[in-house]
């Protein structure tokens, strides 16, 4: 009984599938968040160096992971959409962008708030922080381009091109920023390579990472369903859906 996976590539069937999956993911996300935060705040010991300030790491690091991870996922869906001309994959790519941008902003925000007690300044031109900022610009560029184009098909393809060009440039940007950083400051502010992780700290961070992942899947699925409705409004199955909904 081979489930033909291609059945789900048609927006109509994906719509119902996503409908069933979204609550599932959001519940797991919620549970993981609670668990992660509990361990992070109540089980993890006080760090000898930064006392309690380090607890920001439980949201900062997962956010940074998710920001880069989501950009890669977005670019791959965009590529599939461009190559196979499947409208659904481009819809998913369009749906991922806002969540990715949010996580990049969160990574920057929590990084700044963590940097203040640790280094005494809100912003440090460190290689990772700078490339995170540039990643935010890439996300915004993607969303702005898609917003500026009315015809959805062209918007999808144009977005795919800029996402792929962005993905090719991320390593170059990261390398040049790292090079630039060492040239100027000689890395006076060396980020301690995430303090020797006590077991509980690590588990809490991993759980939070998973929680953010589940959360993003849930939000992306929800947004994809909205986009499907928006773009398929003229189709029959949407009007039938209206009859019943």
């Amino acid at each position: 009984m081979a489930i033909n996976w291609f059945k789900y590539s048609s927006p109509a069937s994906f719509y119902s599938l996503a409908g069933k999956m979204t609550p599932l993911f959001s519940i797991t996300a919620f549970a993981l968040f609670v668990a992660g935060l509990y361990i992070g705040f109540f089980v993890a010991p006080t760090d000898f160096q930064q006392s309690e300030a380090y607890r920001i790491i439980f949201i900062h690091v997962p956010a940074a992971w998710m920001s880069m991870f989501l950009y890669l996922i977005m670019a791959s869906w965009a590529a599939i959409g461009l190559a196979f001309n499947t409208r659904l994959s481009s819809m998913i790519a369009t749906a991922i962008a806002p969540t990715g941008a949010m996580f990049t902003f969160l990574a920057l925000w929590t990084g700044a708030l963590w940097g203040k007690p640790m280094w005494g300044t809100w912003w440090v031109w460190d290689a990772r922080l700078t490339s995170e900022l540039i990643l935010l610009f890439l996300y915004i560029g993607f969303m702005a381009l898609q917003a500026a184009i009315d015809d959805p098909r062209r918007a999808d393809k144009a977005g795919a091109v800029i996402a792929l060009v962005g993905v090719v440039n991320i390593p170059i940007i990261y390398f040049s920023v790292k090079w630039w950083n060492t040239l100027h400051q000689g890395a006076t502010v060396s980020l301690t390579q995430s303090p020797k992780m006590a077991a509980t700290m690590l588990t809490s961070m991993l759980i939070m990472g998973l929680a953010c992942w589940m959360y993003s899947i849930a939000v992306v699925l929800m947004r994809t369903r909205t986009i499907i409705l928006e773009r398929e409004r003229h189709t029959m199955w949407v009007s039938e859906l209206q009859g019943t909904a």
Partner: peptide, 9 residues
């Protein structure tokens, strides 16, 4: 700082 970042998130 801690609650600032968690609240915003």
């Amino acid at each position: 700082y801690v609650w600032g970042s968690y609240l915003v998130s």
